[in-house]
């Protein structure tokens, strides 16, 4: 559907304006990348890449910076939140597409998506004042008593449960990303051709067998895309974790210790950076975060598009 009309001068102007507006997205992405590289250049020059990401030194007084503690915090909270969220989210998607009676499908799906509308600062407030005490008083001591006495994994649950730690932050993050994973999984499940499902039911398959042997094999790439998208979201989440992580620049053994993620460090220290190299290192962190999340989100988009295309053909 290409449009070949006699060009009206106003039309040329209007189309150029719209073209500029849409290219602004591309320019913004390139601009962000350029500015972040430019601003972090002093730090890149001083610390290099490998040294920066492997150094655990975060010392504003000595002017020596490394991102390892931040990367560690980001990786642990993200992976842990995905581990908690994905099974629940897939359960929700199965419930909404296959189990719920028709009149409940819409409302329950919409209600869970409303979780995504709640701003992250509210999650942070709730996490700090409500969830953290619950974690510190009930859940973490219980975990310590049960799994904490086991060999090997026991070390993850050592220390005094304070509620301001990696575990609480991961739980909050997992609640935040459930709607993303659930929503995309649901869309992927819905793309399964009804005829194939009906054929399986006609052969006498149970619902569980239809989901396990038909729906999930059909939609696994899409569901995976949803998981990767949630990973990208969790990676860049700031306020929800800023309240409950404590900004502690250490690599810790226990999940009951405070830590720092890239985002939390930025939120807490950006306005306090008093030296150029300090600020530059913070920009370096932002650059790392931007590049990582961009790659992860692009991958997610790739998987999601692939499912949609694959089913259409």
């Amino acid at each position: 559907m290409t449009i070949r009309l006699k060009k009206n001068p106003v039309d040329i102007i209007f189309s150029s304006i719209t073209a500029i507006a849409s290219v602004s997205v591309l320019l913004l992405i390139l601009g962000i990348l350029y500015v972040l590289i430019l601003e972090s250049y002093p730090s890149i020059e001083k610390f290099g890449f490998l040294r920066f990401i492997t150094s655990t030194d975060w010392n504003p007084v000595k002017g020596s910076f490394g991102a390892a503690t931040n990367l560690f915090g980001t990786a642990i909270t993200t992976v842990l939140s995905i581990l908690i969220a994905v099974p629940v989210a897939i359960g929700i998607a199965i419930f909404v597409t296959e189990i719920a009676p028709n009149f409940l499908k819409g409302p329950i799906g919409a209600a869970i998506e409303l979780l995504a509308a709640i701003p992250s600062i509210i999650y942070g407030m709730w996490g700090l004042f409500t969830l953290a005490p619950i974690m510190a008083n009930y859940i973490e001591p219980a975990l310590q008593k049960s799994i904490g006495s086991l060999p090997l994994v026991g070390v993850l649950f050592e220390g005094t449960p304070m509620g301001i730690d990696l575990l609480t932050a991961s739980v909050i993050l997992s609640i935040m990303i459930i709607p993303f994973t659930a929503s995309i999984s649901r869309d992927a499940f819905n793309l399964t051709p009804a005829v194939i499902k009906e054929s399986a039911y006609a052969l006498g398959a149970t619902k569980r067998e239809v989901v396990k042997d038909i729906v999930i094999p059909y939609s696994k790439v899409g569901v995976f895309g949803g998981v990767v998208l949630s990973l990208g979201r969790a990676l860049g989440e700031t306020m929800a974790v800023a309240f409950v992580l404590g900004n502690n620049h250490q690599i810790t053994k226990s999940l009951f210790d405070a830590a720092a993620t890239i985002t939390v460090t930025l939120a807490n220290e950006f306005t306090e950076a008093d030296t150029d190299i300090y600020l530059s290192s913070l920009f370096y962190l932002a650059l790392l975060l931007f590049v990582m999340s961009f790659i992860i989100l692009a991958l997610a988009k790739f998987f999601i598009l692939k499912t949609e295309k694959g089913i259409k053909q």
């Binding site: 601009g31 990208g232 985002t263 930025l266 975060l289």
Partner: peptide, 11 residues
């Protein structure tokens, strides 16, 4: 849409 908003702040 999903790029971390704090990065936009630093930009």
């Amino acid at each position: 849409v999903s790029v971390p908003s704090i990065v936009i702040g630093t930009f």
